[in-house]
Design a protein around this nucleic acid. Structure first.
Lengths: 359, 359
DNA sequence: GTTAGCACTCAAAAAGTTGGAGTGCTAAAG
DNA sequence: CTTTAGCACTCCAACTTTTTGAGTGCTAAC
């Protein structure tokens, strides 16, 4: 059952006012904000309806109205005016990105900080690990006891390890080994690197010293713990300024929850590249997030890999601004990481998706 | 002017009681805790003395006493009974260390988390960057447009970068380049890698495509931003449980301060390997730390490199337990990182050093 | 030097008071 | 059938007052 135009206007006014003020919104204020041409009493009647239908609620009788999760959901899906970033803003982001994208190891950290700065909410980044395979091996001979393993992955990342051994070997041994690894270990997934494969390799190359297993061990470790798979949070302290987190216990609960990487990766979910996902209060699975909202934008990190960048805040969150900013960051990031300079469609047009189950 | 034995006992009782309860301590409680054989009135007289001499203060007339920074300092320097870890505790730490010391990239993060878990205070780790030089270059030819730079540093770390170029080059070109770099760029500090050096190298090798500057750029970047130099914090949320941080503004101020790596590295200071440094309240330079204490233990990361692991908390902190734990962690870490399995002296004997200026 | 005794202080908790924003309802008007 | 003015009512939030009790400093006796 569709809401009347006037009810929508009123709901929007309540949500937006509440987002700004964090105070229950009364009929008088709605009237001012919505610009409707009727009396407060009329608005009160409408508010009562919206209340009955579950979009709004009262903290107590004789208080103004506050949006429910259902109210926010409707707002995000239908009522919200999509915010276009001003060219000043896009420029600011672009510049910051350029300034920070120096060291790949810390890139995601930096992006997170940036998102925090821009939205003033705690930001999280999640880069999901992908199954990489080995693409090429090089063994660099240093001295009779040391060499470097250089491993080029299918993701074009390079991993390496300096190995010191208590016994000596020859350079030609390494040459032989690298040839064997390049033929036997490239392109195959980690789970097929069995003990048999290793021992057969060992025999093939005539290795009696265990060099083979050292190298194989490094490869397996690298492929399993792989790069990526990282998650981090920044700017948690920003929560403490918000009225909904004045109670230190509330803040503690959420910050603590966020500080465990396991909880973050649990946020990874369906959703296409380019989407902005909004999870409002109880739409979140975690208990700790029941009173918070999460906005996530996914980016393409090349090679079909996806990552997420998002922020966490109270359900009373400026969804439109946050979504626009995250979307833009994710888009820029995709471009930066070479995940395709032209996103599938409509970055900036902002596709928002959420849990529509009971709306 | 030395305090009487009884005054010391009383001061110790006040400090220890206050550390536990966070409530101003009265004469009655002191009596119980210290086991002294006298009347409350006598204790009151002594307390008044300690107050006058600046070791204690009253939040208001007719409240109990609270230690001042000067009081804590005396306590830490002279009164504190050094806590030996139980073998259960050392074992717990050792096991955790073993369980976590898997990936060198995240080692310090893990150590920080561990310190937080053990002390339930926010933990920080600081690994100071050292001036590394290049020790060896290898250029791995992949295809006419791509190669890998593998750079072995004087610290025995290996850095690498995959380079794609819009123009093609030959393998022999790379061989020549690596020879030149190995002779001209190894062993010299980053500040001597001037534009002249680069362009003369370019001429020497006959490089008209700018390959030289790509490689030199990577080297310079690697040496400057070097590895190490990292700082991180974990467990900030733990502050929120403490009575002194019930005011969200206080908590925000400190957490925010800690979240900026620049502020952390500022804590690096003098102090020898093996020391535990305690900075109490106003002994800290930073305004944000005036009401907090920092306990830092330094570890040896091999190659003369030092790092710090520490915790931050209210001045009312269980110094003795914290110092013992951090000291043990730092010691284990030194051993793990090969910074010498036998520390210079007295790990566990716990040398505590602080700012003795006005005690 | 130590102690009992007592008046005094002051914060924190409990209880009471007030003000005002905002509601729901009713009844009249459109 | 919708809109509106009017009014009684509710309830939080802020403020004031009261009470309580822990803890002190001081004095005078031991």
């Amino acid at each position: 059952m569709e809401l009347t135009e006037r009810k929508k206007k009123i709901l929007r006014a309540v949500v937006e006012e509440y987002i700004e003020s964090a105070e229950p919104v009364g009929s008088r204020t709605v009237l001012q904000r919505s610009g409707l041409d009727c009396s407060p009493a009329t608005v009160r009647n409408e508010l009562a309806d919206l209340d009955r239908e579950g979009y709004l609620e009262q903290p107590h009788t004789s208080a103004g109205r506050v949006p429910t999760a259902k109210g926010y959901r409707l707002y995000v899906n239908e009522l919200m005016r999509e915010r276009e970033l001003t060219s000043d803003e896009t420029q600011e982001i672009t510049e910051k990105l350029r300034g920070r994208a120096v060291r790949p190891e810390t890139l995601m950290d930096e992006i997170g900080h940036m998102a925090t700065e821009l939205t003033s909410y705690p930001a999280l980044t999640i880069s999901s690990p992908t199954k990489a395979t080995a693409k090429r091996f090089d063994l660099i001979y240093l001295d009779p006891n040391s060499f470097i393993i250089v491993l080029l992955l299918s993701t074009d990342e390079v991993k390496n390890k300096l190995v010191h051994l208590p016994f000596s070997f020859t350079e030609s041994m390494l040459v032989r080994l690298s040839a064997v690894f390049n033929s036997a270990f490239t392109g195959i997934p980690e789970e097929r690197m069995t003990a048999e494969l290793i021992s057969s390799t060992e025999r093939a190359v005539g290795d009696t010293m265990g060099l083979t297993s050292v190298i194989a061990g490094f490869v397996i470790e690298t492929l399993t713990t792989s790069h990526g798979g990282g998650a981090n949070v920044s700017g948690e302290a920003n929560l403490l300024k918000l009225p909904e987190f004045q109670d230190p216990n509330k803040a503690h609960e959420l910050i603590n929850y966020l500080s465990d990487a396991k909880n973050l990766t649990a946020l990874t979910g369906q959703g296409e590249y380019g989407d902005v996902r909004v999870l409002i209060g109880p739409e979140n699975a975690a208990l700790e997030l029941q009173n918070s909202s999460v906005v996530l934008a996914s980016y393409n990190a090349g090679d079909g890999m996806r990552g997420l960048i998002g922020v966490v805040g109270p359900t009373r969150m400026d969804y439109s601004a946050v979504a626009a900013k995250l979307s833009f960051i994710a888009g820029s990031l995709s471009r930066l990481l070479g995940g395709g300079s032209a996103p599938p469609r409509g970055f900036g047009k902002l596709m928002i998706k959420g849990d529509d189950s009971d709306v």
